[in-house]
Design a protein around this nucleic acid. Structure first.
Length: 438
RNA sequence: CGGGGUGUGGUGUAACGGCUAACAUGCUCGUUUUGGGUACGAGUGACUCCGGGUUCGAAUCCCGGCUCCCCGACCA
């Protein structure tokens, strides 16, 4: 059997499993030359053509094996960065009871109009989660009673549901999407602010690692009732829904929604240094203060024995949206160009022709790579060179290795970087070392 | 939720109100080919979105619904 599932890294919870190597003949998805006519957005066109996603309805996409790998790669980066600042992963239910939502007044359709609501057989009303502030706050009443219990930072990585009036832009605005949501519970503003800064830095590292570091800006946006600003992380992108004004020197931006002279003065930004750009919100961080903890009565006993409301914050990153943005921004006329850390496989290994020696040697290389823990997709299909090369470009693995008679004549296997097209020929015996040494 | 479009084999397209709904691609079989979707042959595959209506006759015209796409509104 050539598709094996293994645990890749023990520092992550062991229920996260991925394929680290695979024969393409076993992959049930296929590439196609043309995208469906009803898909206009670049991310959906490429992801469908390359076999990453399948559309079920507007805003509803099935994530196929290759996309699951991408999403898990992104999620694992986020896990790493969230755990590094004290985050603790958990898994909320997607079904929610209405009580905590009634406490905050948000069960009301006038307040929140993008609910998917449903009910139990006995008539009890439930909803499909679009976020988890209320249920998380309610749950934490079980675990927080003293200032000694604070701060804590539980987070979820899961799908949530929003009944968008108009889904659009492929996976960038779906009715169901995969995200990370972290909620911070602190004893006071000072403790909260300390974490707020830390998570902002963690977010920057996440965007750096997924390959969007150069184009993603911490952006000042409206903050709601309890803070003057919230912060969004906006990635410059042609198909973005937001307009931001970037100060490239300071590396920050201002969302159009708060773009006023007062705000600019407050932030010490001068208009002359700003560049306008379309952008996509790939994350946000909110200070919530006691907006949820007071109505839901989440309080703790402070050092003086007095009850006090927990000071909260919430922090989201849209993982499936991030996948879409990466495709939008990192692709060319031939297809997707995945950054190395989130590509489904590091290497796309292909052979041409029916020379049995070549095929056997390529297969040996495939086994050597997988034994070395290097993620490899082996195109062992009986297909012509044009098809294999085009598919490799379309699917977007960072490295393509061609093992062929011609490559051997030129000194070994041909290793081509998808991003630059740079090619070099390497002795097949040295390929594993080539990747292990970076 | 307002406005505008759209809907034909799996996919992309064609078809004046009138022959058995055409072409390409995909898929199957055979031969061929192996560094950029190779070539040829034989097959396979469609209640033309759904429901009404007009007509001798509807993929085509009309009405209603649904779908998807776009613009806008909305988006803790």
């Amino acid at each position: 059997m050539s598709i094996i599932i293994i645990h890749i890294d023990l520092k992550y919870p062991n229920f996260h499993v991925v394929y680290i190597y695979m024969k393409q003949s076993q992959l049930f998805t296929k590439t196609r030359k043309e995208a469906p006519s009803d898909e206009v957005s670049k991310n959906a066109q490429l992801l469908i053509r390359a076999g990453y996603i399948h559309k079920v309805f507007a805003g509803g996409y099935t994530f196929l094996p290759l996309a699951v790998k991408v999403l898990e790669n992104i999620a694992n980066i986020i896990r790493y960065e969230m755990n590094a600042i004290g985050g603790q992963e958990m898994q909320s239910t997607a079904l929610q009871s209405k009580e905590p939502w009634q406490a905050t007044g948000r069960w009301n359709d006038a307040q929140v109009d993008n609910w998917f609501k449903t009910s139990l057989k006995n008539g009890t009303e439930l909803s499909l989660a679009f976020t988890h502030e209320e249920p998380m706050t309610l749950m934490m009443k079980n675990f927080i009673s003293s200032y000694k219990d604070l701060p804590v930072y539980p987070y979820d990585i899961r799908s949530v549901f929003r009944n968008e009036a108009r889904a659009k832009s492929g996976v960038m605005r779906g009715r169901e999407f995969y995200w990370k949501a972290l909620y911070s519970f602190s004893k006071d503003k000072e403790q909260h602010d300390d974490f707020y800064e830390k998570i902002a830095e963690a977010y920057s590292r996440v965007y750096q690692r997924v390959g969007l570091g150069e184009t993603t800006y911490k952006t000042f946006a409206s903050g709601g009732t309890f803070s003057q600003y919230s912060h969004e992380f906006q990635t410059v992108c042609e198909s973005g829904e937001d307009t931001i004004f970037i100060d490239t020197e300071k590396g920050i931006a201002v969302n159009q929604e708060v773009y006023t002279d007062e705000v600019l003065a407050d932030l010490d930004i001068s208009k002359e240094n700003l560049t306008e750009a379309k952008a996509v919100e790939v994350g946000n961080i909110f200070s919530l203060a006691d907006k949820f903890s007071t109505p839901i009565e989440l309080s703790y006993t402070n050092e003086n024995g007095k009850p006090q409301s927990v000071y909260m914050g919430s922090y989201g990153i849209g993982i499936s949206r991030l996948m879409g943005v990466i495709v939008e921004n990192m692709s060319d006329e031939k297809g997707i160009v995945w950054p190395e850390e989130i590509a489904p496989f590091t290497i796309h290994l292909i052979t041409f022709g029916k020379n049995e020696n070549i095929i056997r040697e390529a297969e040996n290389l495939y086994h050597d790579l997988k034994n070395a823990g290097i993620e490899v997709l082996f195109d062992d299909r009986d297909a012509g060179p044009g098809q294999k090369l085009n598919d490799a470009d379309l699917m977007g693995m960072p490295y393509r290795i061609v093992y062929s008679e011609k490559s051997l004549e030129k000194g070994g296997v041909e290793i081509t970087k998808r991003e630059s097209g740079d090619t070099e020929f390497v002795d097949p015996e040295r390929v594993v070392a080539y990747f292990n040494e970076g």
